[in-house]
Computed example of a mutant assay.
Amino acid sequence: MKLDIRYGANPDDFMHYDTDRLRNDFLVTRLFVPGEIRMTYSHIDRIITGGACPTIPLSLECGREIGTEFFLQRREMGIINVGAPGTVIADGERFPLKKLDGLYLGAGIRNLIFESDNHDDHAHFYFSSAPAHTSHPNCYIDIEKAKKVKMGEPEKANVRTINQYIHPEVCSTCQLMMGLTQLENGSVWNTMPCHTHERRMEVYFYFDIPKDGVTFHIFGRPEETRHIVVRNEEAVINPSWSIHSAAGTSCYSFIWSMVGENQEFTDMDHVPMSVMK
């Protein structure tokens, strides 16, 4: 198990970061290394972003950085499989997950194991974990069970479907919210016009990006934006004061994970296009 530590950022300092500093502090790469569980611990709301790529069954261990007896002792977790079929075993209960199936695990799970169904074609379990002061029931969510919200207009190249997996209208959680947005062919923009939500931070994990393509993730204060070039199966940590938007060289998909004060999906501060710089 590999755990990387990232610290928070003051928006006044952020505007002076160069490309290397932005990538070192906010970009999460190499999430799916065969035979490993890799995680990034952000001090922004103490979210943990990770990936498991099992070649053999992989058990999630708890390091000193977590400070508890076992990983989910005081945490909850959301998982979405973006690879080949696999199985998550939580305290002996088996949850088969095909591609785009999701799973919520409440606090208190002692033993968590990731398996690929086929050792030659590995599952890619993407997960987010947040501190939890109470436990909620485990919940399996496939993409058909997710709440679907259609957004965008063809002439603005932003037609997309938001699949809300871990959301109050789908399953109960302590604070974690998680879902998957899919852009339609011909659309490249997400979350534009943009917004902020000071009460929640967010992590974007991008996938379904072609090998010869990239996505430009735009973040920072609306009047002082920056960007990171993102490739397939990479993620970006967004502070709560930051916008979070992107444009790709083609359509793509992304998983969003939110942690913070509330679970009001529509609680956002919209940014007029005239403010953007």
Rank of each mutant, 00 (worst) to 15 (best):
V271R: 09
F125K: 09
F265D: 14
R74D: 09
S59H: 13
T49D: 02
R110M: 00
W241L: 06
E198N: 15
V28Q: 04
A157N: 10
D121C: 13
A246S: 15
G260R: 05
D142M: 02
D45C: 07
P57I: 06
N158A: 08
E93K: 15
L105S: 04
S240P: 11
I209W: 00
D208M: 08
Y41Q: 10
I5D: 04
T40D: 00
C139H: 04
E198P: 14
I228V: 06
L27Q: 12
T161Y: 02
T68C: 03
T215P: 00
R110N: 06
I141C: 04
Q164N: 15
E69F: 00
G86Q: 08
Q182Y: 08
V28K: 07
K145N: 07
F26I: 07
N111D: 10
S250D: 12
R199E: 15
R38L: 00
S274N: 13
L176T: 11
K147G: 05
E36Q: 13
G86P: 09
N238V: 12
Y140L: 10
F207I: 09
G67H: 02
H119V: 15
F205K: 08
E264A: 14
H133M: 12
H195S: 15
F125D: 08
A146N: 05
S187P: 06
N158Y: 03
P57C: 05
K150C: 04
I243S: 03
V214C: 03
V259S: 03
E198Y: 12
M15G: 00
S274C: 09
D101P: 02
I255W: 02
N24A: 08
N24C: 00
N158Q: 07
F219M: 11
V82D: 00
G83T: 11
L183I: 05
S187G: 09
T225K: 12
H124R: 15
S42I: 07
